[in-house]
Design a protein around this nucleic acid. Structure first.
Lengths: 143, 143
DNA sequence: TATTGTTATACTCTATAACTATA
DNA sequence: TATAGTTATAGAGTATAACAATA
């Protein structure tokens, strides 16, 4: 039997990706919690960073039922992070936009997440990080 | 302005890892939902695959409060997926073990997750998958 | 006293079904 | 009729605080 001298045993690709996803989600949860933001609330703000979509589009982005979006936006609006606006061209539609307060919180948490990710990859060399970035980008869905 | 002829724009490392984590979590959610398993219930079973830990250890593994573990295990036990057993050496401690039914469900869902991950990485070449596996393994926390 | 686990409580998140209003 | 959104309801998941039993 050969000795495994490396620190971490090589996982299967599935196990490695699943465990990595939990590690990243833990970062999102921890950073968000510091600002009373759940992962889904943070994700909502992230989507609104450069969009002003109607409720139905949010449901598609987040893969949630439209009734779940109502509550999600309700709670974010109550905190002053987002705002509903009527769509002049369709009386049924409600658009959601981030407020100035919401945008400030996005920038703040995004910077913290960046720092935490930097810690996560601290053992990788520069070229290794570049390779990981390229590979992960090819798997990340084009929103 | 130069044209971007590639399919996917290169993301920052943070964005790539965050979006990849959501893609993987979406797979876990979708496969789990087909068997009435939430992500956290599936994760619980995954931990129990080769362990029989007390409640407090589960709380550490899952980074949840012990009171949350009570409910989580309650619901899994009610479905016959796990079982509480008394620890003979410590009257306060309760160990949690997966049942035969639970183990069958683990193997079933693990196989489906494997197939979904294979689809996720279908555009990567063999060597690219190997590189991704190695890099992700180095980031995945040693449980 | 400290640790293990449960209970009570409150809130967020989520889906289903039924509803209103607009197209 | 079909679509956009809300409401009512029920249940899962989570944390905090208070508790019981054991160490």
């Amino acid at each position: 039997m050969e000795a495994d001298t490396s620190d971490a045993a090589e996982l299967t690709l599935t196990d490695a990706l699943v465990q990595l996803s939990f590690a990243v989600q833990a970062i999102l949860g921890r950073v968000g919690a510091d600002h009373d933001l759940s992962v889904i609330q943070g994700r909502l703000l992230g989507i609104l960073r450069d969009r002003e979509p109607p409720m139905a589009a949010l449901a598609r982005y987040l893969n949630l039922d439209k009734s779940s979006i109502t509550g999600l936006v309700d709670r974010a609006e109550r905190r002053g992070l987002v705002q509903r606006t009527a769509d002049p061209s369709d009386g049924r539609s409600v658009r959601v936009a981030v407020t100035d307060n919401g945008r400030a919180l996005i920038e703040l948490t995004a910077a913290e997440i960046d720092r935490e990710i930097a810690l996560l990859v601290r053992d990788l060399s520069g070229p290794e990080r570049q390779r990981l970035c390229t590979l992960a980008s090819r798997l990340a869905p084009r929103l």
